[in-house]
Design a protein around this nucleic acid. Structure first.
Lengths: 231, 231
DNA sequence: AATAAAAATTGACAATTGTCAATTTTGTTT
DNA sequence: AAACAAAATTGACAATTGTCAATTTTTATT
């Protein structure tokens, strides 16, 4: 079985490509540009969705906070990704919070406008279903791996996922700075910060990764791939 | 924060209720009744979806098999639930396998028919989106809990989920026989069978559950709820 | 009911992971 | 560049969990 990172990482697809000219004009006129500082909250768990967000710049972490205050990071969205529509469609409160990981710029489509366009556009509905379905697959794949493997394995896979998240262009050969703090990384892996750091240390000692300050650079992509392929 | 099992367990909704008379006739005539013996496979991971399944009788486990041969059970579907449509919509192979846990009877709607009806019915599309969104929420909730808690906590929550799955009618006060083998239960929790058994032993010693042969009965529902509420 | 096969349970032990308390490094501000 | 605060790292240890090898119980079959 060959390893494919897309099993664990959703490729972003543009949401409004399929719209008619009128529809896209409608959207274009109704879109609101919003900015968030690092650490600022886009929406909170249990609140109701006010619309959908399309990232223009920066990264947004999606997480649940447990009773100890620990964050379980479910996803990190990047430029081109869109989110916030699921609870809107299901008419449920957000199961998660969204916080800017750096300086973030988004296009915000208010609920009413979005639903109006959705009513008229069967292709948009289709697009959403497909996107949901794909996100679901990514989730199931990631979660079954995560429920059955050691922290070391989970860190290896997470490094590959984050490599994709922080990659600037399609060329995956170029070295990437994974710029994530250890608390967030630990929350993404679902482990304690100290345990995460120890696994990074092992990978550093093996010269599989290196760090420049807080940033992580993958040196031996191939070795991580092999680890994950044999999981 | 009050505990609500529906965060972790999807209430089944009927799929074709919203159809027009013609559409439902079309479906009715195209539906195929299928039966599966205990342990028989409905579909395998990596295969392409041939249609959608609606359970009339029995339980179906949905799982991924890892390289060690261990099954990670992501869901157990019961009477009234439908599944198999996600990869069909996304035009992807099944990320999971489906196997009958007992004698199962399903209504099977072949792909072509289903897609035909979907084309014409906006309400069906809506229904699917809502269902997908809800399933997603359930998933995220379950998984963040699972990634951050001890096996004992996970078993407590799993008992409550399985209690719902094996419940015959809406009246949750009646005692329920959870009839699942330990391998499957362990796969559902994401732990080793032996560890699972040890947790069940603790709960048995505390008179929170009891077992009749292989079957599990919850005696102190309230205590489990409290455990989960404080997670 | 006796028997065999399968499943569940327990014990002992090793490996993994989490927690708490330092210590070191990095980043920011003056 | 110095000084401070924040973040990352390490050490020591305890708690949790997984594995392997019996043993017991349950289920299915005759």
């Amino acid at each position: 079985m060959e390893f494919n990172i897309e099993k664990y990482h959703l490729k972003s697809s543009s949401l409004f490509d399929s719209l008619s000219y009128e529809e896209s004009q409608l959207i274009k006129n109704g879109i609101i540009r919003k900015e968030y500082l690092k650490g600022e909250c886009l929406f909170k768990e249990h609140s109701f969705s006010k619309g959908i967000y399309i990232i223009k710049k920066g990264k947004v972490k999606i997480f649940q906070t447990n009773s100890d205050g620990k964050e379980g990071i479910v996803y990190i969205y990047k430029k081109g990704d869109y989110f916030g529509y699921r609870p809107l469609l299901a008419e449920e409160p957000h199961p998660v919070s969204a916080v800017a990981m750096d300086h973030v710029i988004v296009s915000f489509v208010p609920k009413e406008l979005f639903l109006e366009v959705l009513e008229s556009s069967a292709t948009l509905a289709k697009e959403l279903i497909v996107n949901l379905s794909k996100e679901f697959s990514v989730w199931i794949n990631k979660m079954t791996i995560f429920s059955q493997h050691s922290v070391k394995d989970k860190v290896a896979l997470s490094l590959l996922i984050l490599n994709k998240v922080y990659q600037r262009n399609e060329d995956s050969s170029k070295s990437v700075f994974i710029s994530i703090n250890r608390d967030d990384f630990a929350g993404f892996v679902g482990t304690a910060k100290e345990t995460l750091v120890r696994m990074l240390r092992i990978f550093k000692d093996d010269k599989i990764i290196t760090t420049k300050g807080t940033k992580i650079i993958i040196l031996k992509h191939r070795v991580l791939l092999n680890m994950v392929e044999n999981m």
